[in-house]
């Protein structure tokens, strides 16, 4: 029976392979002709073509026309129907009577989103690094079932943002698990976590850390495991205390990975959207409205639809991301150099 099934499976497998093989052989016939004309190296262009075509149409061109977009006005989506307004969108963004108060700006929505995002980034990244570092250090110890524990912290990383958002919405509901636990432990009143400004903001931070910390933990863990064991053993032979080993050996040697994690976390935090959008929809009010959601609503959803403004805002955000990415590249290049030497 089992033999039979394996037989069927291998027959099916070889059937698929045979079909694919036949298709590839048929493709090969015109391509041999092409190779005769184009030559060996000329075939490189052929292999590049599909990817580069898609890449050009859907990444490169949008990237370039984004700048044009940001200099046009109106609500039309096609460029030829939009009127050129020069730098008006930018000047509108930057016209504030008081540069310390977002409400005094013409585009107060933008600056509110910027402010929200900034606070989010600072708090979330700090906590994220802290939590991931502690977890990585703990997972690097001699514990029973390390693979299992690593999996535990990694689990939410794969979940879709929508699922993550809904899971936590359900827990933070008025009838939800959190209120239940607080009620059982302290007899606390039911509380609407997601309709209160501070708690909603805290929830977006907590949920995004929950969702992504496993990723950073893995990177840091890889860094920790790259530190040679004999260094610890040598330190132990010298009678160095555990805390001293951590501060004087582990942390300095982990620093390159920490820098990479820091910049990666920054880049991702600036682009926070999916899970918090599902969780709070930017509310209550605009207290958890972050940049991407602002751009999204300006571009597509809101009644004040203004794609030009959205494009200008996205370019400003892109500039921040470019700076961060350059930092990351510099950091990883320095790491590589260090590893080589």
């Amino acid at each position: 029976m089992a033999d039979n099934r394996r037989g069927i499976r291998s027959i099916a497998g070889s059937l698929v392979l045979a079909v694919v093989g036949r298709v590839m052989r048929i493709i090969d016939i015109p391509l041999r002709g092409l190779q005769k004309v184009a030559g060996q190296t000329g075939m490189a262009s052929f292999f590049l073509l599909p990817n580069m075509a898609v890449f050009t149409v859907f990444i490169l061109i949008p990237f370039v026309i984004n700048f044009v977009y940001s200099m046009t006005g109106g609500t039309q989506i096609f460029l030829d129907q939009r009127r050129f307004v020069g730098l008006q969108q930018y000047s509108e963004i930057f016209s504030c009577s008081d540069y310390l108060d977002p409400n005094s700006c013409l585009q107060d929505g933008f600056w509110t989103a910027v402010g929200n995002t900034a606070s989010f980034v600072v708090i979330q990244v700090t906590l994220m690094i802290l939590v991931s570092l502690i977890t990585a250090v703990i997972l690097n110890r001699e514990i029973i079932g390390r693979g299992f524990w690593r999996a535990v912290f990694f689990f939410p990383v794969l979940l879709s943002p929508v699922v993550t958002g809904l899971i936590w919405r359900w827990i933070l509901e008025r009838q939800g698990l959190l209120n239940f636990i607080l009620y059982e432990l302290f007899g606390a009143e039911q509380f609407n976590w997601l309709t209160e400004r501070t708690t909603a903001f805290a929830a977006t931070i907590g949920v995004s850390i929950w969702a992504h910390m496993g990723f950073y933990t893995l990177i840091l863990l890889a860094g920790l495991q790259a530190i040679p064991r004999d260094l610890y053993e040598a330190a132990q032979m010298d009678g160095t205390s555990r805390s001293r080993i951590f501060w004087r050996i582990t942390l300095p040697l982990l620093m390159p990975n920490l820098v990479v994690v820091l910049v990666l976390a920054l880049i991702r935090a600036v682009q926070v959207f999916d899970e918090v959008f599902v969780l709070t929809h930017g509310g209550p009010g605009t207290s958890t409205m972050y940049l991407i959601q602002y751009i999204y609503e300006m571009g597509f959803a809101s009644e004040l639809k203004n794609p030009g403004l959205a494009a200008a805002a996205s370019i400003l955000m892109g500039a921040v991301l470019v700076v961060l990415t350059l930092m990351q590249m510099a950091a990883s290049r320095r790491n590589e150099k260090k590893r080589e030497s």
Binding site: I59, N66, Y69, Q271, I295, G299, G318, L321, V322
Partner: peptide, 18 residues
Amino acid sequence: TLMVPLGVIMVPLYSVVS
């Protein structure tokens, strides 16, 4: 272009797709 996430180009990308 690794630096150009969707969030940055969604408006023009939408017009290209349309």
